Amino acid sequence: MSRAFYHDYPDILQLEADVLDARPGAVLIERSPFFPGGGGQLADRGTLRWSGGTLPVTELGRDERGLWHMFPGDALPSGKVVLEVEPAFRALMCELHTLAHVINALVYTRFGGALLTGAQLNADGTFRVDFDLPGADNEGLRALEAPLNDVIRRDLPVSASFMAHADAQAIPGLFRSKAVAPPVGDDGLVRIVEIFDLDRQACGGTHLASTGLARPARIVKIDNKGRQNRRIKIAV
């Protein structure tokens, strides 16, 4: 997997690019600003414009050659196309994903290095994160709402860098999930997202430039999911 365009140029949401391959209802593009989804984050929404008109991008799929963009119907775009990501939806996913990292950091540091067992960001402005927390006090988890909003008020910068995968694996706490890990690039690097003075972990998703760009958040529910898992649902 080569370096993703949306990692290097997160603020570019419109891009002209060449079609590499096509089949009815889908095209493979040389490069794309679209985030394809993964790690609990929903794929970007947007459009594909070409000489034959404008099509909504309804699904994205990756293979060894790059990113396929799917759309309704059986059109076969060719030549150059213009890809445009919907800004409001991208901004929402960035907001929720950044807040998910904040709550992850708070749980990790305050509950003995508890690992993530699942996550899902939603289009309605909510998200949930699941942790391996047998015997955890649910009221203690609910009390994380105050420090979560304090991090928003502090407006901490969020940055990203790349590190050799082997080096990242040797650093405790960079990988927080029991089940999944961010993809490793063809260059052997993995992306590390850092919230200044709070958190640093491997992640392939999109994020805000600082925590202060997020809206106030509230913990709406704590669920016991089996003997070990605790689910925290948060809304903005």
Rank of each mutant, 00 (worst) to 15 (best):
M1I: 10
H7L: 05
Y9F: 15
D11E: 13
Q14L: 03
L15N: 07
V19R: 12
L20K: 02
D21K: 10
D21F: 08
P24V: 06
A26I: 11
R31H: 14
S32R: 06
S32K: 05
S32Y: 03
F34G: 00
F35Y: 14
P36L: 00
G38R: 01
G39H: 06
A43M: 08
R45C: 13
G46Y: 05
L48G: 03
P56H: 14
V57A: 11
E59W: 13
L67V: 10
F71R: 09
F71M: 11
F71D: 04
P72S: 04
G73P: 07
G79T: 13
V81P: 00
V81Q: 01
E84T: 11
E84C: 07
E84Q: 10
V85N: 04
P87W: 07
A88V: 08
F89A: 05
L96D: 02
L96C: 07
L96Y: 02
H97L: 09
T98V: 09
T98Q: 08
A100N: 02
V102W: 01
I103G: 04
I103N: 01
L106M: 15
Y108C: 15
T109N: 12
A114T: 11
A114C: 15
T117R: 01
G118K: 07
N122S: 14
N122E: 13
G125R: 00
F127Q: 04
G135A: 12
A136S: 14
D137W: 13
D137M: 14
N138Y: 15
L144P: 00
E145L: 02
N149C: 11
D150F: 06
V151C: 12
I152L: 04
R153G: 10
R154H: 12
P157V: 12
A160E: 01
A166N: 09
A166C: 09
A168M: 07
A170G: 08
I171Y: 00
L174P: 14
R176S: 05
A179S: 15
A179H: 15
V180F: 09
A181F: 03
P183N: 06
V184K: 01
D186G: 08
I195T: 02
D199L: 11
G204E: 00
T206Y: 02
H207P: 13
A209V: 15
R215W: 14
P216S: 06
R218V: 06
I219A: 00
V220T: 03
I222F: 08
R227L: 14
Q228H: 15
Q228D: 13
N229A: 15
R231A: 06
K233P: 05
K233M: 13
A235Y: 13
V236K: 02
V236W: 02
